[in-house]
């Protein structure tokens, strides 16, 4: 019962961090606010008229926010953008827009809105992702249900199982990459419903491992939901150490058993 790194302290963060996107967005928003303030000040500052050597043209700033960030299909979102020092502002899918403005949009699928602000000082970009929750289709007849779910092989190619460190349910970088891939496939195939099974290696307590498996499956679910997959499409089942993919007492085998497995929920 040895493990190469069993003393690795478990993170006290009991829930996986949301993707960095949220943090970036916040930073961008703060930056934009301060930028506006500065712009207003310089507009009335007589010093700017003084015959000093012309400074380098300022780098444009741009911010783009959406409210709300997630909608149900058919609802609309208010986009709000602010730029400074830009003379050419475009938003992908909308086209040239005023330097500051708002617009109401109603995307039919989850969309990345992307703003490009070009000025004398350079080009700045910003983006915001609007998640569209597509309602789960009513239970389809069995003959068409299979078609809606797509093929088993395509599913497993695009939604790979993810693996965990010992006694941990934090998503490793490889697992985060896998859930990004999985979420884009699931967003593109809104009829797919999935089961996430949480599994543990066969060391330790059976009853405690059910909790660990639950946490692993939920960590994977949270990553998918944050990436825009509707929570109602995801079912979570913890198998603890009750189902083993591999029964050798080796680290390679234990690693196989510490996983969140994705299956079509037919």
């Amino acid at each position: 019962m040895t493990d190469p790194r069993p003393f690795q302290p478990r993170s006290f963060r009991a829930w996986p961090a949301r993707p960095h996107r949220a943090a970036l967005l916040l930073a961008a928003a703060l930056c934009a606010l301060s930028g506006c303030h500065k712009n207003a000040a310089t507009g009335t500052n007589p010093n700017s008229l003084a015959p000093t050597p012309a400074p380098l043209p300022p780098v444009p700033t741009a911010s783009l926010t959406a409210d709300p960030l997630a909608i149900d299909l058919g609802q609309s979102v208010v986009l709000n953008w602010r730029t400074t020092d830009a003379n050419n502002v475009t938003i992908d899918g909308i086209g040239p827009v005023n330097p500051n403005g708002t617009q109401t949009v109603a995307p039919s699928t989850s969309t990345n809105f992307h703003i490009v602000a070009k000025g004398d000082g350079g080009t700045t970009e910003a983006s915001v992702r609007v998640t569209v929750r597509v309602p789960v289709a009513p239970t389809a007849p069995a003959d068409t249900g299979a078609a809606d779910m797509g093929s088993e092989a395509a599913f497993h190619d695009n939604v790979p199982d993810i693996f965990f460190d010992y006694d941990s349910y934090d998503l490793r970088p490889d697992a985060q990459a896998a859930t990004v891939k999985a979420s884009s496939y699931l967003v593109a195939h809104p009829d797919i419903r999935i089961v996430i099974g949480g599994y543990c290696d066969d060391r330790g307590s059976a009853e405690y491992n059910l909790a660990l498996g639950e946490n692993r499956a939920n960590a994977a679910k949270t990553a998918l939901v944050n990436a825009g997959v509707a929570p109602a499409r995801i079912r979570v089942v913890s198998y603890g150490k009750e189902k083993q993919f591999c029964t050798d007492e080796t680290e390679a085998c234990w690693q196989q058993n510490r996983r969140a497995q994705f299956s079509l929920d037919r």
Binding site: A14, E207, L210, A211, E214, N215, N218, S238
Partner: peptide, 9 residues
């Protein structure tokens, strides 16, 4: 008993 209705036991 131990239960996880909200995702955590």
């Amino acid at each position: 008993y131990a239960a996880a209705p909200n995702g955590s036991f």
